[in-house]
Amino acid sequence: MPKRSNKSKRSLPESTEQWLTVAYKPVSLFSLKRSDATSMAARSNLVPTPYAIKMAVLKVLLENEGFAHSTDFDAWINNEFTWIRDLQIFVQPPERLIVNRNGYKLRYYDQTADKADKNRPTVPMQDGFVFREWVYLEGNLQICFGPTVKVEELQQLLAQINYFGKRGCFFQYLPDATQITATPQFTPQPNQSFIVQLMDDLGAKTKFSKINPYSNEKAQLDKDRVIQTGFLPLELVASSAKYDLYQRK
C-alpha cells in the first residue's frame, strides 16, 4: 500500500490569543483613592483600575511562585511581569453603586517634626480632618482581560485574589461566571450614558524594578505609571451631601 503523504497534515498553532472574562462578588465596602488625591482628602474610584488589578495579580504570583524561583528570580519575574503588564483590561461595574462620603477627625504624626530645627519646640502629634469615600457595590463586578496566550495561568491567579483597593475591601471570585472568548465580552462605549473616571495603568515599557518597592529605581508618572481617561456605563440618578447613587446603563 502507498504511504500516506505528510503534506496533507496541517499543524495547528500551539497557542492563540484569547480574552478571559471573570466576575467577583463584593462582600464589603470598596475604596480606592484616586491618583490625584491627597493624603488628607481623597475621593474614591468607583471600580478598581487596571493598575490596581495588575498589582493584585502580581501579588498573588509572587506569594505562590516567588520562593520557587529564588535562584533565577530576576529572569523569571521579568518574563512574568511583561505579559501581565501588556494585558488590556476592561471593567464592567455592578448594576448599582452607592458612594458614601465620610469625614473623620483624628490625630496623626507630624512627619516634619524630625526634620525641624532642634532648637525650637515641635508638636509630634497634630489634629486633622480626613475626608474619605466608601463605595457599596450592588451586583457582580466583571473584568475582561486580553488578548493573551496565558489564559489558564491568568485564571488560576485571578481565582486567588480576594481584595482590590484598600486592604479589607474583599471580593469573592465566582468560578461559574468565567468565560473564554476570541473577542472581549464588553468594551467602553462613550456614546452611551457614562461617567468619566481616571484609570491608571502600567506604562507600556516599564519594568518590574520600577514598581518594586524594594528597588532603588523610582517609577515616573506618565512613563512607568500612566493615567488615562476611562468611561463607565453608569448614570447618576440621585445625589446629596452624603451620598451619590449610580445605576448601570
Rank of each mutant, 00 (worst) to 15 (best):
P94H: 01
G146S: 01
R96P: 09
I180S: 03
T229S: 13
A56T: 02
S44H: 05
L202P: 01
S240R: 08
F186D: 00
I98S: 13
G203E: 06
E17M: 05
Q192C: 08
V91S: 04
Y214H: 10
D74I: 13
V27W: 12
F208Y: 13
R96W: 10
P124L: 03
G146E: 01
R167V: 09
A182V: 06
T112E: 10
D110E: 07
A75M: 04
Q189E: 15
V123P: 08
K218I: 09
C144D: 14
S28M: 05
K33S: 13
M40F: 06
K3I: 15
E152Q: 14
E235F: 04
F170T: 05
R120T: 15
D117S: 14
N212T: 00
G230D: 07
L245N: 11
S239P: 00
W19G: 07
S11H: 09
D36Y: 12
R107V: 14
T49Y: 04
F131E: 11
Q156T: 06
T71N: 14
K242E: 13
R107C: 12
S44I: 05
K118R: 11
Y163M: 07
A116V: 01
P50D: 10
E95G: 14
S209V: 13
E14P: 10
T206P: 05
K118E: 08
T82G: 04
F208N: 06
Q18K: 15
Q172A: 15
R85G: 08
F145Y: 01
I89W: 00
A41G: 06
T112C: 01
E153H: 10
D224C: 02
S239H: 14
K218W: 12
L236W: 07
I211V: 06
Q197D: 13
P93R: 02
F164Q: 04
L12V: 14
N102I: 07
L58A: 03
A23I: 04
I161P: 02
S31I: 09
D72F: 00
L32A: 09
K118C: 06
Y243D: 15
T206L: 02
L106C: 10
